[in-house]
């Protein structure tokens, strides 16, 4: 059970993440690796925490019939991620204050928060599918960025782009190792606090049926 104290802590952590992302905006965005792999995930994490706190206060949020099975929420997450995967959007965030402001709103509230409200409602197969897909697509991005003969972002150097590709590859491999490892050695994994599919037998899970 989440205690009130824990909830406060999570709320504070979310705020802190937002503030840090904003305060160290220039530093984080100077390098595409920290921009894409530190700032954006941190913003999404903040949204995840906010949604967690909010759904404790308003349990209806987590049980919204519109989001049965988590499909609607995950689709929002999908489009949010697609938008922020466009090199145009990243370039835009660096040159236009409006797009930058949009990033601070949409990444937490259209990626992190709906993910938190939908992930555990999704069927384990859907979750497994999304995870495998994420690995595959991280690999694709890594490959494209390492091999592309063109600069995809006007605001970043080609060598930074290649470094970003390598970073994507490392993230993909680490995630694969972590998820794969848990499937081998910790079959009871997937408790409510982390991003792993719940692999317990049908019936003992909380996903929507």
């Amino acid at each position: 059970m989440t205690t009130g104290f824990q909830r406060c802590g999570e709320f504070a952590l979310a705020l802190l993440l937002l503030l840090l992302c904003a305060a160290f905006r220039r530093t984080l965005e100077a390098d595409p690796v920290t921009h894409m792999l530190v700032q954006l995930p941190a913003l999404a994490w903040a949204g995840w925490l906010f949604a967690g706190v909010a759904s404790v206060r308003r349990p209806r949020l987590e049980a919204a019939p519109t989001n049965a099975g988590g499909g609607a929420g995950l689709l929002i997450v999908f489009f949010g991620i697609v938008f922020w995967m466009l090199p145009r959007s990243i370039d835009g965030a660096l040159t236009s204050p409006e797009i930058e402001a949009a990033k601070f709103l949409t990444v937490p509230f259209l990626v992190g928060a709906p993910l938190r409200l939908s992930w555990y409602r999704a069927h384990p197969i859907l979750r497994g599918f999304l995870l495998s897909n994420a690995l595959s697509m991280l690999g694709v991005l890594a490959w494209l960025y390492m091999a592309a003969p063109i600069r995809v972002c006007n605001s970043y150097l080609v060598e930074d782009q290649q470094r970003l590709g390598l970073a994507f590859l490392l993230v993909a491999l680490s995630l694969a190792a972590i998820w794969g490892g848990r499937l081998f050695f910790k079959p009871d994994g997937g408790s409510a606090g982390d991003l792993l599919p719940d692999l317990k037998a049908n019936g003992s899970t909380s996903y929507d049926t």
Partner: peptide, 18 residues
Amino acid sequence: GVTLIWQVTDGARAVTAE
């Protein structure tokens, strides 16, 4: 979502700023 992505990529013709 499809409309949004279509809009911001000029009809799926430009994914980079260049």
